[in-house]
Design a protein around this nucleic acid. Structure first.
Lengths: 224, 224
DNA sequence: TCTATATTCAAGAACTTTATTGAATGATAT
DNA sequence: ATATCATTCAATAAAGTTCTTGAATATAGA
């Protein structure tokens, strides 16, 4: 008896899941969710050899999670579509709710997590309409330039200490970065709170914002 | 340098993805999505040794995808929550949209698929209110008994040919089974169409209905 | 055409996952 | 207690995955 169409389909879907089944590849996907990246750029960010990154990218491509195009000497990779962001969100969601170990890590490293009460996209949209909030993007400048939330100010986490004066201590700040588990925004909130700022984290990051079809801005300078 | 909290989190999420990365386990999850099952019952349905099924179940459990409870001599497994159904849906969705091979399989085995224009949950809800449709559950009787759509008639696929007289040829029929790729409902639609019935497929199956928080019925006899 | 640069391919060692087998555990009923 | 049945554990061989290394392509510019 040969395998039926159902087993064949499940085998394909399982292959997609397997492509998601490596921490390195998840990290690559999170970076690609910010925008297109070349192989070397990715390799640098996640500290892996170029050949190795290339191989991981082939796997992601075979699984239909990323697509690529050539631009001169470079090959640029990107997520195939927003469905991939949704899939990652669903994966993280299950992990966060059902794995004790995840809970432990979140608690031990992001102690304030519970008290932070993250801001939802809808909430942020309403508040920005009133002009009541500073939206703070703590990702590196190049990622900010590629795309960011409308009116956001960019202060990469590493520069935050040095550029505190750019922030108005009386206005509420909403910080965001790459995604729901991007460490940058957690640390930004911790650092700013310690200095008496009124800060909260955006629940998701830029990719989820984009996947929700909400407007974005491009370019280096903004808001501030 | 030790691994940071981010890598630790991604490692956990990757483990969840890896648990989904086997066709057999996906098949088990689809069955568990219908309701609780014992180890032996599962083993029978997907033709795998009991020991093997048990080991797969341990993996799914470690990944937080299923939970278990003991009932006398039996250990019954179930999905941890509806988030798992959402995750599988997101996975199938990405596969269906982005993998040429999936498209090929769907086309070659379910030629009518495009012409079928599946009925959405919302659409079905509206139509049942008007009493215009026969809702047909083509899953085996025991799965039907565990839970089914309100007012549904149960005719397992294998009995369909013999029980055609139970269906009213003038009324529109909406067939459903275990999930979006459950073969049963595709075949039921094909068989009934060949006999001149007006049939369509429900877009999803029972698990998605449940995950959406819609009402269900239990018990063997119903509707008809 | 030749050279430099970005990426991919190929082969191999270390490690992980899978299916199989048979033994061990845990709960129930005699 | 003992026997019985459902399930899990442990050990193993086969298959698959990961990372590394060095060679092979493909493009751009001289």
């Amino acid at each position: 008896m040969s395998i039926g169409p159902k087993q064949a389909l499940l085998a394909e879907f399982a292959a997609v899941a397997r492509a998601l089944g490596s921490p390195k590849r998840l990290e690559m996907l999170e970076h690609l969710a910010q925008g297109e990246r070349g192989v070397e750029a990715l390799a640098k960010r996640i500290s892996l050899s170029i050949a190795n990154v290339s191989q991981h990218l082939q796997q992601l491509k075979r699984a239909g999670l990323v697509a690529s195009r050539r631009d001169g000497k470079f090959v640029l990779y990107r997520l195939t579509d927003e469905r991939v962001v949704m899939l990652m969100r669903a994966l993280f969601d299950v992990g966060e709710r059902n794995l004790a170990e995840v809970d432990r890590i979140l608690r031990s490293h992001f102690a304030e997590r519970d008290s932070l009460e993250p801001v939802t996209r809808e909430e942020l949209l309403e508040r920005t309409r009133g002009g009541l909030v500073t939206v703070l993007d703590v990702r590196p400048a190049d990622e900010f330039a590629a795309a960011h939330l409308p009116g956001a100010v960019n202060i990469p986490l590493v520069e935050l200490e040095a550029r505190l004066s750019e922030l108005d201590p009386r206005q509420e700040i909403v910080a965001y970065c790459r995604g729901p588990y991007c460490v940058l925004s957690f640390e930004a909130v911790a650092a700013l709170r310690a200095r008496g700022f009124k800060v909260r984290r955006l629940q998701d990051g830029l990719p989820e914002w984009r996947a929700a079809g909400l407007p974005m801005e491009q370019g280096a300078a903004s808001g501030a």
